[in-house]
Write a protein that binds this DNA or RNA. Sequence first.
DNA 1: TATTGTTATACTCTATAACTATA
DNA 2: TATAGTTATAGAGTATAACAATA
Lengths: 156, 156
Amino acid sequence: MDATSSAGRGSTEREELVDALVQAGFLTTAVLTRVGAEHDLSLTQLRVLAILRDRRLRMSDLADYLGLERSTMSGLIDRAQQRGLLARATSATDGRVVDVLLTARGTELAEQLFAQITDALLPVIGSLGRAEQRRLTRLLTMMLTAHVMRHHDATR
Amino acid sequence: MDATSSAGRGSTEREELVDALVQAGFLTTAVLTRVGAEHDLSLTQLRVLAILRDRRLRMSDLADYLGLERSTMSGLIDRAQQRGLLARATSATDGRVVDVLLTARGTELAEQLFAQITDALLPVIGSLGRAEQRRLTRLLTMMLTAHVMRHHDATR
DNA sequence: TATTGTTATACTCTATAACTATA
DNA sequence: TATAGTTATAGAGTATAACAATA
């Protein structure tokens, strides 16, 4: 699909891996963007639905997850709320806090979205054999787990 | 970092892989976005610099690469040009065509940018051993190559 | 006083539609 | 007439700064 990459240039092993990761990242992002666009959802809106699929979160937690400002979240949630995809609920214990949660309509859309994303990525992962797929899952998971643990340490 | 993911739910092997790919995609995108932001560059501007690092391209080819409209490219190139990062050059053989290429300043920034991206991803890939890194590179490359070939067939 | 969220403002990114210039 | 690119316009996404409400 692209290149922030283009490798070449007598690249080292590490650079090859960085390049492959970046290209794979653009590929999956392109798929998510396309599926989102089919439902008039930006990548960010799609991520909001994904995050809220199995929990409710306060505005500020959502902003932290996405790496956005709280003021940006206000606008994003406004627009999704107007479309009936999610709802705001003021916390009972702290009047300053606003929780966000999916509506029935939002939940339904989220399920549909993620079925479509899986379908769209099937041909991509289908180029690998079953054993290779398992190996790839294992390697990526190891990498991601280590990253999350490190991030958790740093935030503590 | 995130989740368009959240796995769980008695997921199948395929779903686990899709989830890992999506999470890895967000991780690399977050790194690229952060590094870009340090230089006041959006992810798209960063990709433009990356694509032009080793070639010059016409506006419409750039738009195709990025999956954007030509009108969108005009604005993106305008802003980067005002910053002195790239230049427009009307084609000698076809007066309608506009080629885009990096300036010396743009080239310098691009090199700097990609060194930083590699640095930022080192801790992530460093969680894998040398042999595992090679295996991951191989699996991702196989996957990406198959995708590019399929895409090429479809476009032909 | 500090924290949570919203509002006001400004700029970038993006698409659609209309346009200009060249072929 | 068709193609390459730009301009006009409008809306979404984003950040910074100022603000309101609650703690």
